[in-house]
Design a protein around this nucleic acid. Structure first.
Length: 888
RNA sequence: GGGCGUUUAGCUCAGCUGGUAUAGAGUACCUGCCUUACAAGCAGGUGGUCGUUGGUUCGAAUCCAACAACGCCCACCA
């Protein structure tokens, strides 16, 4: 083993080894209880970013933990075809070759995308593998696989037959750049600084005009009326009147509608049913036929003045304001900020657009999905997201599922060209149901990407077929994802799961935060502030990346990433590596252990480390079970670094070096191997590579019955708590010893005693029982403090001059001729006395407060009183010592 | 407009059902060490009226309320 851990030499080799051993494969026929997770499928042409790294590390930890803990663990991987996103990428590429999808034609274009998919699909999966993910790659799926496509058609037909899918002319969010409809969720609102223009619309049959306020002047060309609130007295006598729409000279009515807010703008609103969702609904209420004046590319069209035709909507806005101004019809303009929808794929401002689209009725689907959250059969981690989910479920609006793009699942609907009959079918129909004509044409649109993703937990397992995979692993257990897609994906999967399978697709939802840079900005390629996980893996290793990321991520909180963060994991891996190297380096010939040494041979540190180990096992399990992975990391970090390396291994060095006492050495090796093997197992889900590598080295030197039996650590068993080893008393006792050692080290350090100067310690405990126990620990004290001799004597008198401290009533002296500085000691003791005085007065107030004594639990009161006595004893001794020292 | 979150050491953050000799870690900083596992290390140290103000309580970083700053999500005010 080399002096520094080198992940590069290890990681790829080990991943291949796992693959060769089929270690990730889950079996439908296993008798073990199932545990399953489906991956949130990354975009097929995506590249790995820190969000993926976090998301997949969490899943890998859960799946490895469960796999080691006796479950048949399936982590089902796959990718998403990401309709609009992927089509955009391929179109961009085509544009470079001066081609576009229309010149290519639909068939050729789709082939082009498939080609792209084949080429780039491996990027993201290769990158995931570098992270060390233990996905069952044999079961990898793609949302446009034949089976999954069939599932999409099945559910479409089922929903249609149940009356839950309909087609209609509605106003929807339209991206003029992508030239497709978007769902409400895909139109992300952003606050923009805009203007509010007040326009005058002259009356037809009388003098004067109405003043309407608008943020979108260009839509006035499509106005079909003016609406006012029926209770608005300013306008009550004008309802029913007619105004003449300037520039187009169309006569339009003034109507009354409750929607209108009297207090906003002028209290009168122009109604443009074809270009505003509210106006659309108002138009319906007042039988107004929408007039389209903006086309699918965002340019002006229709029966409007010639000069505007073909103009971009924003250019037209400018001109129109000028023209109205010229006519004297612009009353005023004011600044106004408002939320405007943007395409979540290309960020273009969304245009409300009136067109024929397909919709899913959400209300009926939402009922069960809502109930699952209300009665907590589904659990959110952290739980605050439950409310967000419930709010959305209670206010669902119908889901626009048709997209005017080519890459995706084509809508399984055919129109008879002869009798106009609509045929909805899973398999391509050969003839019309009504007139038997074979002249059928399929709907041109494809389905929203999420219409396939919402089936992911079961379509990937073969649904609608009743496969063994579904039987064994569906429903899944935990979904790990980001809160951004609760509505897009999580909520819809729950609806689809209930609707298709009658079961919730998962019961735990773990939502992790967003990865941000150190200034709090979301990491993204376009902002150029992202840290590339692959670069970090190259530099620090996958384990370091994983461990660092998880350790700094509190449950559900956003992660602020600084490049130095990864030092934590790298240094920790190196620490573990060196501790292992040291232990294994002390084994000359392979040793075999069957059990721990007899209890009688345990030293204090043996009992202590076993107790700590088992507390760590308990804590780690609990933390993972509650999805508090950062807590598990901290527990392991502290135990391994501070308890095991800093104290236990140090304490065992003497035994390990000594070859003249083979029993001692053997016992030390036994215990060290035992603890190390457990450490590796506990850490494996978090740092799979290095633990596997050390495991390999460990097994070359040590055979430990029932512990190192498995050739690969990933196939070994996760440690279970052995309460026969846990003891608070032992931990407390050893803790006292540690405090004494630290006190002595502090004396040395504060007095700048050179390391090579050894010395003597005198320890005067108050109690004889303590003295006896400490007597058995003098070797350890000598070792840790670098002393020649430690004397424990409860009846000894104080040395005339020495470095000193008082630890829980135990007086500790360090005797080093000429090396202890009186001033330093006086200062230290004074400081300590002042500190303790402060504490003591606080405790005194407490125990003298009758309210506290009467109302607080007896145990708490007793504890405080005991604490106070202890403080007094310490203070008394310190003050006495200080006085004596000052006298000399 | 509604909802949610955050505010703790110079920096990044833990701190769960209120009670640990009096708030922890990493990092940074100061001191001493290349001590035969590890300088990516070891030992010791400095550093905090836990955003503000009230309240509940014997007791509050922790529970409640208001306020402030920052951030996020949702929403059809033209």
């Amino acid at each position: 083993m080399e002096k520094q851990y080198n992940p590069k030499q290890v990681e790829d080799k080990i991943y291949s080894c796992w693959i060769e051993n089929s270690s990730f494969l889950a079996s439908e026929s296993s008798t073990k209880p199932p545990y399953s997770i489906v991956i949130p499928p990354p975009n097929v042409t995506g590249i790995l970013h820190m969000g993926h790294a976090l998301n997949n590390t969490i899943q890998d930890i859960l799946i490895r933990y469960k796999r080691m803990d006796g479950f048949e663990a399936l982590w089902l991987p796959g990718t998403d075809h990401a309709g609009i996103a992927t089509q955009n990428v391929v179109e961009k590429k085509l544009a470079l070759e001066e081609k576009n999808r229309h010149t290519l034609g639909r068939e050729a274009f789709i082939q082009e995308v498939w080609k792209w998919k084949q080429e780039y699909h491996s990027t993201i999966t290769k990158q995931l593998k570098k992270l060390g993910v233990s996905c069952d790659w044999d079961k990898e799926r793609f949302t446009m696989d034949e089976g999954l496509s069939k599932a999409v058609r099945e559910i479409f037909v089922k929903l249609y037959n149940d009356g839950l899918i309909y087609r209609g002319k509605y106003i929807i969010n339209w991206c003029p750049r992508c030239q497709t409809a978007l769902s409400d969720e895909e139109a992300a609102h952003q606050e923009l600084a805009g203007k509010l223009w007040h326009f005058k619309y002259p009356f037809k049959n009388r003098e004067g005009h109405m003043v309407v306020a608008t943020t979108r002047p260009e839509t006035m060309l499509g106005d079909t009326g003016i609406a006012v609130n029926p209770k608005d007295e300013r306008y009550s006598d004008l309802i029913g009147q007619t105004v003449v729409l300037p520039l187009v000279n169309r006569e339009i009515p003034i109507v009354a509608d409750d929607f209108v807010d009297k207090s906003f703008g002028t209290g009168a609103v122009k109604v443009t049913p074809a270009h505003d969702p509210n106006d659309f609904h108002m138009g319906q209420r007042h039988a107004m036929e929408p007039i389209v004046v903006i086309d699918e590319a965002g340019t002006m069209c229709g029966e409007i003045p010639q000069k505007y035709i073909g103009q971009d909507r924003f250019a037209c806005r400018k001109d129109l304001v000028e023209d109205m101004k010229a006519l004297g019809l612009l009353e005023k303009e004011e600044n106004h900020s408002h939320a405007v929808g943007h395409c979540y794929r290309c960020d273009t401002i969304v245009e409300p657009y009136y067109s024929d689209q397909w919709f899913v009725k959400m209300k009926p689907l939402a009922e069960g999905a809502l109930q699952a959250a209300l009665d907590n059969t589904i659990t959110f981690y952290p739980k605050r997201w439950r409310k967000t989910y419930i709010d959305w479920m209670e206010n669902t609006r119908d889901w626009c599922i048709s997209r005017q793009i080519w890459w995706g699942h084509r809508i399984p609907v055919w129109y008879c060209q002869d009798c106009q009959e609509t045929v909805v079918a899973v398999e391509t129909p050969t003839k019309c149901n009504a007139c038997h004509s074979q002249n059928l044409e399929q709907d041109n649109d494809v389905l929203d990407t999420w219409f396939s993703s919402w089936l992911w937990p079961f379509s990937t397992m073969g649904w609608p077929e009743k496969t063994d995979l579904v039987n064994k692993f569906y429903p899944t257990d935990t979904l790990v994802t980001a809160p951004e897609i609760i509505f897009f994906w999580v909520a819809r999967m729950i609806m689809a799961g209930l609707y298709c399978t009658g079961k919730l697709p998962f019961t735990n939802i773990m939502l992790h935060g967003t990865v941000r840079d150190d200034t709090g900005k979301k990491m993204s390629k376009s902002l150029g502030n992202s840290i590339d996980p692959i670069e970090i893996i190259d530099q620090y290793g996958a384990d370091a990346l994983r461990f660092s990321l998880i350790m700094i991520t509190a449950q559900g909180a956003d992660v602020y990433l600084h490049p130095d963060t990864f030092d934590i994991g790298r240094n920790f891996a190196n620490k573990l590596w060196n501790a292992s190297r040291f232990l294994l380096g002390n084994i000359d010939q392979k040793v075999t252990f069957n059990t721990l040494p007899t209890t009688e041979s345990f030293s204090a540190e043996d009992q202590w480390i076993l107790s700590k180990l088992n507390k760590t096992i308990e804590g780690t399990r609990k933390a993972i079970d509650l999805f508090r992975l950062n807590e598990a990391c901290h527990l392991l970090y502290d135990f391994i670094w501070h308890d095991f390396c800093d104290w236990y291994v140090e304490a065992k060095k003497a035994d390990l070096y000594q070859n003249d006492s083979p029993d001692k050495k053997s016992n030390a090796l036994n215990l060290c191997s035992y603890v190390l093997a457990h450490i590796l197992k506990l850490l494996h889900p978090f740092m799979p590579y290095i633990t596997e590598e050390i495991w390999h080295h460990l097994r070359e030197k040590v055979s430990y019955a029932h512990i190192t039996e498995s050739e690969l650590i990933m196939a070994s068993t996760f440690p279970k708590v052995d309460i026969s080893h846990t003891s608070d008393d032992i931990e407390e006792q050893f803790g006292l010893l540690q405090e004494i050692i630290i006190a002595l080290r502090t004396v040395r350090s504060e007095n700048n005693v050179p390391p090579e100067k050894r010395g003597k310690a005198l320890i005067i405990p108050a109690k004889e029982s303590t003295a006896q126990w400490l007597q058995s620990q003098t070797d350890l004290i000598n070792l840790f403090v670098r002393l020649d001799e430690t004397t424990i004597d409860s009846s000894a008198s104080k040395p005339t001059f020495a470095g000193q401290a008082v630890v829980k009533g135990i007086q500790v002296f360090l005797e080093l001729e000429g090396l202890i500085d009186r001033e330093v000691e006086v200062a230290r003791l004074t400081k300590e006395i002042n500190h303790l005085k402060g504490v003591a007065s606080k405790v005194k107030n407490k125990i003298e407060n009758p309210n506290f004594v009467n109302k607080a639990p007896e145990a708490v009161v007793a504890k405080e009183k005991e604490k106070y006595q202890g403080l007094l004893t310490n203070l008394e001794q310190l003050e006495k010592n200080l006085k004596e020292m000052s006298k000399e």
